[in-house]
Computed example of a mutant assay.
Amino acid sequence: MIDTAEFQTRVARLHAALSDKMRLRGRTLEAQFRRAGRRLPGRQRRAAAIVLGAQDWMGHPKLARVLDMRQVNAAFADLHAYLDPLDPKEARRTAILRLLGGIVLNLIALGVLIYALAQWVRTG
């Protein structure tokens, strides 16, 4: 059987990690996971479902005793293994570079179209 206080501290650490690493707002862990959506890989979404299910079961003393703690511990470990190496500054930098790359690509395509139109008008 797990200590509920220990479980709540692990949930609080996971809540803080989601806030810091992925910049997810939400009052509860469930709201944060809902906001994360497809930003989390499938394996981590399954781990999140296990943690949320365990969180529901921990509120009931008899259900908490039958909870498979190996599975819950593995879910916590899997989520932290994914979140710990994330760098929010690098993610922001990558998003900005992708946006700028898309803008540059569109400007190049527009330039090519304008050039082709000018050539077509001159020859026709």
Rank of each mutant, 00 (worst) to 15 (best):
P88H: 06
Q32A: 12
R10E: 11
T4H: 06
D68L: 06
H60I: 14
L110G: 11
Q55W: 04
F33R: 01
A74D: 08
D87V: 06
A74C: 03
R45I: 01
I103Q: 12
Q8N: 10
V112K: 04
H60L: 13
E30K: 12
E30I: 05
K89V: 13
G124C: 05
A91L: 15
M69Q: 10
L100M: 15
L105N: 04
L40D: 08
A47W: 01
L99R: 10
R70G: 15
F7V: 01
V104C: 09
D87M: 09
A47N: 01
A17W: 01
R43I: 10
G59L: 08
T4G: 04
R65V: 15
L83F: 07
A36V: 01
R27M: 06
V121S: 07
L14I: 03
S19C: 09
G124K: 11
Q8D: 09
L117I: 08
R38K: 08
R27C: 02
A49G: 12
Y115R: 12
A81P: 01
R98F: 11
R27Q: 04
V66N: 03
A12S: 07
L18W: 01
A109M: 05
L107F: 12
D56A: 14
R23N: 11
A95M: 07
F7M: 01
L63P: 02
L113E: 11
L40A: 07
A16E: 14
K62F: 14
L110H: 03
M22G: 14
A5K: 11
F7W: 00
G124E: 09
R35T: 07
D87W: 09
Q71S: 08
L29I: 06
K62R: 14
A36Y: 00
A47K: 01
L29K: 02
V112H: 02
S19N: 11
W120E: 13
L63M: 13
R70S: 13
R70L: 10
G53K: 00
P85C: 14
M69R: 10
L63I: 03
D84G: 05
G53E: 08
T4M: 05
R43F: 02
R43H: 10
K21F: 08
Q32L: 14
A17T: 10
R38V: 03
A95I: 03
S19F: 05
R25D: 12
D20R: 07
F7N: 00
L29C: 06
R34C: 07
A12W: 00
A16N: 13
V11I: 13
N73M: 04
P41F: 02
W120I: 08
R13S: 14
L99G: 07
H15W: 01
V72N: 00
G26W: 03
A81N: 06
T4Q: 12
R39S: 15
A74R: 03
R98P: 02
L97T: 10
P88S: 06
L67D: 05
T9K: 10
R65W: 06
I96K: 09
F76C: 04
L100W: 13
R27F: 04
